[in-house]
Design a protein around this nucleic acid. Sequence first.
DNA 1: GGCCAGGCTAAGCGCTCGCTCACCTTCGGC
DNA 2: GCCGAAGGTGAGCGAGCGCTTAGCCTGGCC
Lengths: 208, 208
Amino acid sequence: MATAEETGGAEAQPWAEVTPDAARRLLMAAVEAFAERGYHATTTRDIAGRAGMSPAALYIHYKTKEELLHRISRIGHEKALEILRTAARREGTATERLADAVSSFVRWHAGGRTVARVVQYELDSLGPDARAEIIALRRKVDAEVRGIIEDGVATGEFAVPDVRGTTLAVLSLCIDVARWFSLDGPRTPDEVGALYADLVLRMVGAGK
Amino acid sequence: MATAEETGGAEAQPWAEVTPDAARRLLMAAVEAFAERGYHATTTRDIAGRAGMSPAALYIHYKTKEELLHRISRIGHEKALEILRTAARREGTATERLADAVSSFVRWHAGGRTVARVVQYELDSLGPDARAEIIALRRKVDAEVRGIIEDGVATGEFAVPDVRGTTLAVLSLCIDVARWFSLDGPRTPDEVGALYADLVLRMVGAGK
DNA sequence: GGCCAGGCTAAGCGCTCGCTCACCTTCGGC
DNA sequence: GCCGAAGGTGAGCGAGCGCTTAGCCTGGCC
């Protein structure tokens, strides 16, 4: 939240806030496993094995398997929200801020594809309370993007008939990157970010 | 394939081709269950129960639980491909055909949200052979949309710097509808289809 | 050196999973 | 009226699941 991390943000060590070292290793192993096979198809034995520990060790640091998913999901959503807030609140025109928001949001989904997959697609595996908390975070994410688009409409930079629908479509486009993006594919995260920023500016009628 | 079904296509009885009546009921039950909870979290007892049968009955009509997913996935992809082909091969300008393709493809993802979810998000749960077959179908889907965009570029209707990337984005946008769309939400499938067709035309620089 | 708290493991509990098997019903053809 | 195939059931198998428990190390403090 208040960290001065400015290294570009890829996902070098994004789990520094998870404090006992073994707990962090378990959490990173869970991210990998959930992203590869999905939450329900992942066993606690698999997670512990990837972290180089016995199955029982998991339960010293986490109460249940679901708590792991919950923690991953919350940290991931907070990171996503931080990225969008940074872009939304910088100086510049609405056009510049929207392009920045989309390209950095897409870069995060492409580069941190494993985390993003878990965060975006395993929401339904959470219990009601945890899910409600995550949904609240998502509403904040939506509000950031909608804010930029509303600004652009107000200044006349954008021509958007349906602000809410367009916001939804922009976010949807970015999020789905986590589904199809592969590091083996022909594009780098930066390239996809630039392409998508251009496409989104066309969608809102900027630079017309 | 050669059926003369012209009823509008929503998804009134889309499983008519699944021949023993009990097999169709099981398949429809599986679609519901997979869409709600995901493939791995769904039990064969749950599927059989929804179809009003005992767990053992499933194995009279299907060899494994995975065969059910495979069948659903293939039929769903064939239907999606048929929708796009119909739009791509009708008469009209590239602009009209692209708008038609996007709006009908989106309508299918929104209206048949349960099927679309299974089809689009449970691909990784298939074995290698079945997955390869489905991926081949997806390439055909991609080719249809790319064809329309290439036509538009050739006639000068569209201004698209990166045809492959834009094709990917258009399909991605449509497919992700299955993730977020809800019949309880404020929009009907028709409305989302119209909104998205407009956004996509902006993305390709049509009507500029 | 004695002690104890924290981190970890081997073993395994109770349960549910996908799937099978022996048997039962229904029904058209003769 | 009898028969065999097709479609269904109840009971239960071996396996693997999430999670627990009893006990073993290790290291800091007096």
